[in-house]
Nucleic acid binder design. Structure first.
Lengths: 182, 182, 182, 182
DNA sequence: CATGAATGAGTGTTCATTCAT
DNA sequence: AATGAATGAACACTCATTCAT
């Protein structure tokens, strides 16, 4: 079952949710077709299992954000959180993609993703508002903008073949930091 | 043929490239299966046609960026460019998504997307470098970060059901502006 | 489509509903797999179409019975009705079998069969009661018994390789006639 | 093994031979897949075991019939035999159904069922002939008709949710009795 | 004796693509 | 140009059967 979950992650990474066949997964896992259906009732079920696992591991992303330090975040705190976000992104990138792939078709999963996006960007907005971002910054908008930047930056860097490194996270942190502080 | 192109755009919007069937397209276009293959040799060909069309219309995004105003952009210039980006995004969002959907499988298209991303983020980086962003900002990184933010912000806002409005573009512009100027 | 319906009838005849594969049907119909799903959404749908067709053609069985001749049926009337029943049975035997095969699994179809059985045996009971069957005969029971005998007699005769002939229908009619008249 | 035989009976009752999976049987028996194949080499083998067991227990049905009382059966004798038939039917109904389910595919089993039907209906025909049924009754036909009625009547009553009771057996007996005696 | 995870051949179903009209 | 019925390869899923423990 672990073998299958790992194989699915790899398969989703290579081709995305829709283009991966159950056959791809079992080939990577070196099991039979039948075994797949022993553990998962279908391809969607497999994805849900993967998502549930990831959600458990990523839960601290909310927690850290949920408690804004009085007097505004300082750069180092922010940098640490960005680092945590980045490592989770790297770990779960294929999943994130598969998740959104299916979300656009499955209303149920769509609502789940919407919920997650709203919660995370809301937490960021709260932080930004607490920091007092000043003129020209709507905290609501900025929260989602930060989330958007982090997510897509990682994606684009992988896509062009230069995965995110520590130095680039410094720059991202500074951009966010400047957005938060007048 | 126009009917088919428009229908494809709508279909891709609803379900993404992989999940839309040729059937969906011809149903929306109210034509027959046969007619589809009269104009396009297959589903991928249809997407390429749409992409070519969009590329022509969006070419000014590069041009504007390609010519950094000496002494740095001012906020109003930046805001205008962001507005232009936004209107093109809204127009071509389904296509962008379909494009990346297929890019992850088709090496040829993948290279094309990679090229576009590199060019656009490079142009932004040049602007940022010219503006003299100061300590903590690597212009190369920041260029791609800005591109990432703009793209994904639009996507997320549509996704949660609150499409981008003018006010939110002001905040985005300010975030970028602050990232560029020490 | 007609080709497929006829092929299905033959296939159901040979092997029953559960044991016939979609493949059997399309092979007999000399069409492709795809064509099958052009007309029917699945194997069950095919059976339902066949049943609907048969129900239309057999509807007169109820009508004739629904109108008991005052003063009791005479033998000739009964004999004619038995003949009509027999010809319909011969025509639709494979269907009848497939229908009950699936009825035991599909609650919806099960209810439909139950309804049909109840209606037909009820109509027979009414006839028997009107004829005044006398001591030892409960019309309710006898109605269903007659239905049972007719149905299964045809089945058994086909099964042992001596299909029902006109002479045997005479005997059946006489058995029913004696059951109805004291 | 007994557990498995009983479980099979229940499973065949619920869904018929073709639709019951080995899985259903072992689930009801609360044993494992492996155990099933320890006792039976496959699903068909299981059915044959069940049939052999039933055949032993039902053998008296032939015996009783095989010995026509000189001067014709009287009603009470007939009623008793009908009762015996009924109790065996109730006990072995699922088996009877499974048996015919498979008989239509397996030529070997088909011959076996054909043999049984012929023997039983022949015995009944002999009785009817001995009783001197009179004009309009062909004893050969009537024997099979009686068998058909008994078998299917039980089935239909179970099917519509009103299992056979003693009173209904009286009516059946009378119908048969009238068929036998002019 | 008993288990139940693993297997893979078999079956149902979808959908891009063709072609006679 | 346009049609839409027909195709069949590709894919999802099931279930009887095996075998290491």
């Amino acid at each position: 079952m672990r073998k299958l979950l790992d194989a699915a992650m790899e398969a989703f990474d290579r081709r995305g949710y829709h283009a991966t066949r159950v056959n791809d997964v079992v080939e990577i896992a070196k099991t039979s077709h039948g075994t797949f259906y022993l553990y998962f009732s279908n391809k969607e079920d497999l994805l849900r299992a993967l998502v549930a696992e990831a959600a458990a591991e990523a839960s601290d992303l909310y927690d850290i954000l949920g408690d804004p330090s009085p007097g505004g975040s300082d750069w180092a705190d922010l940098r640490q959180w960005v680092g945590r976000y980045s490592s989770l992104w790297v770990r779960y990138a294929p999943l994130l993609r598969a998740w959104t792939d299916l979300a656009s078709i499955d209303p149920d999963l769509g609502a789940q993703v919407r919920q997650t996006v709203t919660t995370m960007s809301g937490a960021l907005s709260t932080q930004i508002a607490a920091a007092g971002a000043g003129d020209g910054i709507d905290a609501d908008v900025a929260g989602m903008a930060v989330l958007a930047m982090l997510d897509r930056f990682h994606y684009l860097r992988e896509f062009v073949g230069r995965p995110v490194d520590e130095a680039s996270l410094d720059t991202l942190t500074t951009i966010i930091y400047r957005a938060m502080s007048d």
